[in-house]
Design a protein around this nucleic acid. Sequence first.
RNA 1: GGCCCUGUAGCUCAAUUGGUUAGAGUACCGGACUGUCGAUCCGGUGGUUGCGGGUUCGAGCCCCGUCGGGGUCGCCA
Length: 591
Amino acid sequence: MYRTNTCGELRRDHAGQEVTLSGWVDKYRDHAGIVFIDLRDRYGKTQIKFNLEDNSDTQKLARGLRYEDVIQVTGDVVARPDDMINPKLSTGEIEIRVKTLKLLSKSATPPFVIDQADLPNEELRLKHRVVDLRRPELQKAMILRHQFTKLVRDYFDEQGFLDIETPILGKSSPEGARDYLVPSRVHPGCFYALPQSPQIFKQLLMCAGYDRYMQIARCFRDEDLRADRQPEFTQIDVEMAFVEQDDVLSVIDGLIVRMLKELKGIDYPAKLPRYTYADVMERFGSDKPDMRFGMELHDLGDIAKTCGFGVFSKTIESGGRVRGLVAPQAAEKYSRKMIDELTAFVGDYGAKGLAFFRVNENGLDSPIAKFFDESHQQAIISRLGAQPGDLIFCVADKQSVTSAALSALRNRLGRELKLYDPSSFSCLWVVDFPLLHFDAESQRWVAEHHPFCYPHPDDVALLTTDPGKVRAQSYDLVVNGYEAASGSIRIHDAKIQQQVFDLLNIKAEEAELRFGFLLEGLRYGAPPHGGIALGLDRWVMLLCGYDNIRDVIAFPKTQKASDLLSGAPSEVDEHQLKELSIKVDLPEELS
RNA sequence: GGCCCUGUAGCUCAAUUGGUUAGAGUACCGGACUGUCGAUCCGGUGGUUGCGGGUUCGAGCCCCGUCGGGGUCGCCA
């Protein structure tokens, strides 16, 4: 038997017992006559000690132990004297007086020390993920991830959902994200695609009568990575039949409230607040606003129109917008140089400039203040509710640019000005997304969510008259500024589906080719249905309070989608390619 | 594909802004030490400054290219 207890469980009550522990050497403190070792496993650390008078051979062996050696010890649990209790350890009231020591596995010198205050750079951590995964921060994430998925499964089970698996090897569809492809050996020249999500299969399950489905599903998208995006990620995929939007939202409300309570001890109102897309876009400039703080956007169009500042008035004349926000008590905190930096920052979002005003007792102070007379200055102050000491920022541009620039600025200022508690949570629904948007590049309507999204019942008539105004029965769950879930009610009515396809300029033949197996499923008695998918990795990231998704994935990939641990992706043998009827044709600069 | 940051000892960082033999802490190796818990003290090993070019009397530092890592815009139905 390798152990009778773990390294995290022994307390004062255990004093006097003989125990056997196994684990990793976390620290060693060698005093020649007495040697202390902190023994670690995933449950905690226990101090073990070796006395010269107890057993000089064992003590000699103990002195040679180094970081990450794996050992087994047997000895007696001893209560520590009061002045030697270590309050930093849960096991700090006891220690093990070792009688026998066995070296189970000698470690090579590790590439970095786990308890080091300065974290090694991420490249090294990913290369040596085995060592990295021993760090408490990653262990916390893995444990929380497990607790989260268990809670999710339990919750949906209680609600009558069935966990059903869907294929990993599927059919490629050109819409949406780029597919990861898998060549078929038995069908030369043909490829499977890895699922971007189990979307169509879960709709087919609804048609088949499995009216409450859930799955913790791995999804794959070959798009560029971000701090919160990996090429393979995990969704909590949910679909329900005979439901309206409110039914889906209520089920998820219940999940979120329970999860925040059980995993974070946070009491959240039983029903998460709901906002319309139009509302949050106007007030926050984003469809995923971080509502842990205010600092809302305000429209200054009417004031800008008549002011003396040409950039503003001309923007309004040409159909653009002037909007602004107030950074509370930031006038002194942001120097001209820092504001220049913010100007460059909003430039990334297309803003050609960033107007600013420092608010003082008499009005506005700014290089462009002279273009605003007393009444215009007061109008701006009163519209924004600004106080002396505040700093006002404005962007004048087409609507989409004012939204993108100001929402990014808002997030940045909120963080820099510490306007919220980073450990708090703000969860909300955004509903009534537009069904379609007009893509200027391809000069056509494209689906905002996907082509199977049901239009808002009040807007069906608009499909033929004003498609851009049609709202969808789709919804996002937004947490701390992240899209944490997204879903919709699907079309189960062939006539409306046809209308949407027509709008998207998808011909019947093409629809049959691309989504034929879904349309086929919808043909034989499709119940009204809808669903949602939660981003598991993002949720765990948020629950841990981390700012990147890699720290909640055991073996993540880098920004270039490589796995530094295994070396994937890699070239394969010629005979493997031949078997798959594949010839590699590298671009010239790589060959 | 664009923009920005980054790469110096096993690790975390420094190097007076182009100037002597590239330093410190930690890890590692050796020694001392019987109550430490970031143990302490003494000594030692350890470097093609990511790689390749260039400018210069002289490059860790400047320039060009390239590779890796990170952030972000585009992209992600």
